[in-house]
Amino acid sequence: MIDLIQASKICKDEREKRGLSREDLHKITKLPVDIIRRLEEDESYLKKEPYAYFQMKILLNHFGINEELSRETPVEELKKEKEEKIEYQPRNSFFKFFKGVFGALVLILFTALSFSFKEKEEDRFVVFLSLLNSSPEENTKTTNNLDFERNIKNIRNIHLKAKNYVWITAYIDGKEKVIKLTKGQSVKLKFNKKIKFETIGNANNLIIIFDNKKVALNKKIIHNLFVDNEGVFYNGYNLAQEES
């Protein structure tokens, strides 16, 4: 198994060994020249761009390299993350222990004094106790997460409409599905994570409707088109954004 950094070097070496320019490789794989350059030279792109994995697989398949490609972070980063996690755990454990002891002491004190306070005063102390057991950082994090989730569109389906005969091989959340549409037919596809359209035949007769946006395809045969809750991606470009 190889990671994206290793695959990048292998594909670049193989291209140069075969005497191919990036423009030549673009004409064969249909990947943009700039994307090929990033796959070969830009480690930041390989680590942060989720579609770099699928683009790299196109290059590996073209060169006939049968190594299994890993989606994971390279070994050096994993090692660093583990070291940071080990360093953080004692501090985190001590904080939790201290917080638990402090909470227990406050609870005991509250129980001892509860008989001498009025019901209204008891209610105020309970509120105070709950505030002691939640840090400002946790409250801020929870609020930020809720705001973030509200702003994300949870798109989990698309519509396909055929202007004429269309045939499709798709993988919906990893499960293969063959779809054949005749003129005027439409179908709704639901997914949890993503849809990979491995092949679309007569693609220029197909309209994909994503988040009320119509995406028309201008090629007769299309390979490796991806859909997730962010858009419709082909060769690294979000076609749904371009159509908006």
Rank of each mutant, 00 (worst) to 15 (best):
L113C: 13
M1S: 15
I108F: 14
E72A: 12
A216D: 11
K196L: 14
T29F: 06
N145D: 08
H26V: 03
I155N: 07
E176V: 11
K141W: 00
I195V: 09
G236H: 05
E72I: 05
V127I: 15
C11V: 09
G174I: 08
N144T: 11
I158D: 04
H223P: 00
E84Q: 12
E23C: 04
K175H: 10
R37P: 03
I200W: 00
E49L: 04
G100Q: 05
S70T: 07
Y88V: 01
C11T: 10
K161L: 07
Y45F: 15
L131S: 08
E14S: 15
T169E: 15
I58Q: 01
V232I: 11
N205P: 03
L132A: 06
Y171I: 06
P74W: 02
E176M: 12
L146P: 01
F148Y: 14
F125S: 10
K193F: 05
F210D: 01
K213W: 03
E76W: 12
I207G: 02
F148P: 01
D3M: 03
V227W: 00
N235M: 11
Y51I: 06
N139S: 06
D3P: 05
E138P: 00
D147M: 13
W167M: 12
T169Q: 13
R22V: 04
S21H: 06
L160Y: 00
F197L: 08
I209S: 08
E68Y: 10
K27F: 13
K180L: 08
K214V: 02
L105M: 13
Q6E: 15
F97N: 08
S70V: 04
N218K: 15
K27R: 14
T111S: 15
R38N: 14
E81P: 00
R156N: 14
Y237H: 09
E67H: 11
R22M: 14
P50V: 10
E138I: 00
K175Q: 12
Y171N: 02
T182W: 09
G201R: 03
K153C: 05
K17F: 12
L31V: 08
F210S: 02
I152A: 03
F148A: 13
K213T: 09
E198H: 14
L160S: 02
G64S: 06
D173S: 06
I86C: 04
K196S: 07
N212T: 07
Q55S: 11
K47R: 14
R91I: 13
D173P: 01
L131K: 07
I108L: 15
N204R: 09
A104R: 02
R22D: 07
A170V: 03
N224R: 03
F128W: 14
A104I: 12
L206V: 08
P50T: 07
E138S: 00
K30T: 11
I35P: 00
M1G: 15
I179W: 02
L31M: 07
T169Y: 07
S44F: 10
I172Q: 02
V187Y: 09
K9C: 04
I2D: 02
I2F: 03
E84I: 05
F54C: 04
G184Y: 09
D3G: 06
E49K: 10
K30I: 07
I179R: 01
N154H: 13
G201A: 07
C11I: 01
S44P: 03
E76I: 10
L225Y: 01
L60Q: 04
L189R: 01
A52G: 03
Y53M: 03
N151L: 12
L78F: 12
